[in-house]
Simulated scan of single mutants.
Amino acid sequence: MTEKNQQYFASNPESAHDFRSFSYDFAGKKLFFKTDAGVFSKNRIDYGTQVLLCTVYENYDKIPAGPILDLGTGYGPVGICLKAIDPKRAIEMVDVNQRSLGLAAQNLAENGLSAKLYLSDRYQKVNGNFAAIIVNPPIRAGKKIVTDMLTGAYDHLLKNGSIFAVLQKKQGAPSAEKNLLKKFDNCQIIKRDKGYYVLRSVRN
């Protein structure tokens, strides 16, 4: 893949660095993030992820005890926000993009937080089961990868554990809902916001 058309889901982006920094207020916590070229949404936390985060927070009491997996963490906004509100909860943050993981490590340190951070293509290096898996799938990576990220959650969830996923209606939310319903035998649209749907399926 050439530098010109490299996507944020590339394993090792070679785009020229373009570091940015910003703060983000979440549930009363002021958090700080450093980003760069070659990662998803480098200028701000994208709207879909904000909708996802707020919806998970609103439904946090439905998540049982156990670790949470931030699948496709990017520079770490989901995992860092959740760790900030619940420091005792174990958080694992994975991504295929090495540059993203480097930034996520810096952002954890900047915010005085710790989490298990490692390279994984979808669930390839993920072990154990989770109380929740949180994902804003990379639509441009293609339908197969997105479907793998969603339906693959089933084998990595504890009993009563949930996957929370955000997708735009026009970019495959109805299809994702059908795939989750087929795999889990349940799927709810728990939030609709400006074309974004947050889907939740529970492993019963």
Rank of each mutant, 00 (worst) to 15 (best):
74 G>I: 03
79 G>S: 06
64 P>R: 07
83 K>W: 10
62 K>H: 12
95 D>L: 08
94 V>G: 04
70 D>C: 10
93 M>T: 00
68 I>D: 01
67 P>H: 04
84 A>K: 14
97 N>Y: 00
85 I>A: 01
83 K>I: 03
90 A>T: 14
78 V>C: 14
75 Y>R: 05
84 A>R: 14
98 Q>C: 14
63 I>P: 10
89 R>S: 03
71 L>Q: 00
97 N>M: 04
90 A>N: 14
62 K>A: 13
66 G>F: 13
77 P>G: 05
79 G>P: 10
86 D>Y: 10
84 A>P: 12
63 I>W: 05
81 C>M: 06
90 A>W: 09
81 C>N: 09
67 P>T: 07
86 D>W: 09
60 Y>G: 08
78 V>D: 07
57 Y>R: 08
65 A>W: 09
88 K>I: 09
90 A>L: 12
97 N>C: 14
68 I>A: 06
57 Y>L: 11
95 D>F: 05
57 Y>S: 12
83 K>Q: 10
58 E>I: 01
57 Y>H: 12
64 P>Y: 06
65 A>T: 10
72 G>D: 03
83 K>Y: 07
58 E>Q: 11
81 C>E: 04
57 Y>E: 11
86 D>C: 05
91 I>W: 06
84 A>Y: 12
58 E>S: 12
97 N>R: 00
81 C>I: 12
68 I>E: 01
91 I>N: 03
84 A>I: 12
95 D>N: 07
76 G>H: 01
79 G>F: 03
74 G>F: 02
91 I>A: 09
97 N>Q: 02
58 E>D: 15
96 V>A: 15
66 G>N: 07
58 E>F: 01
96 V>I: 15
60 Y>V: 11
95 D>C: 14
65 A>M: 11
92 E>V: 14
67 P>D: 03
62 K>L: 14
79 G>Y: 00
89 R>P: 15
92 E>P: 13
77 P>E: 03
95 D>A: 14
77 P>D: 02
60 Y>E: 09
72 G>T: 09
63 I>M: 11
88 K>N: 15
60 Y>D: 10
67 P>E: 00
57 Y>D: 11
91 I>R: 02
70 D>L: 06
65 A>R: 13
80 I>D: 04
61 D>Q: 13
68 I>S: 04
98 Q>W: 09
72 G>S: 06
85 I>K: 05
83 K>C: 05
84 A>T: 13
97 N>L: 02
81 C>D: 05
83 K>F: 07
75 Y>L: 09
68 I>K: 02
64 P>A: 01
79 G>M: 06
83 K>A: 02
93 M>F: 06
80 I>R: 00
72 G>L: 03
98 Q>G: 15
69 L>S: 06
65 A>Q: 13
73 T>C: 15
65 A>L: 13
58 E>P: 05
86 D>A: 05
72 G>I: 08
95 D>P: 05
93 M>R: 02
84 A>Q: 12
98 Q>P: 13
75 Y>K: 07
77 P>Y: 03
94 V>T: 10
60 Y>S: 13
94 V>A: 08
98 Q>R: 15
69 L>G: 06
92 E>M: 12
58 E>L: 05
79 G>R: 01
77 P>A: 02
61 D>L: 01
68 I>N: 03
76 G>M: 03
76 G>N: 02
57 Y>A: 12
90 A>S: 13
91 I>E: 05
92 E>A: 11
86 D>S: 07
91 I>Y: 07
64 P>G: 04
91 I>V: 13
62 K>G: 11
78 V>Q: 07
59 N>V: 01
57 Y>M: 11
61 D>E: 14
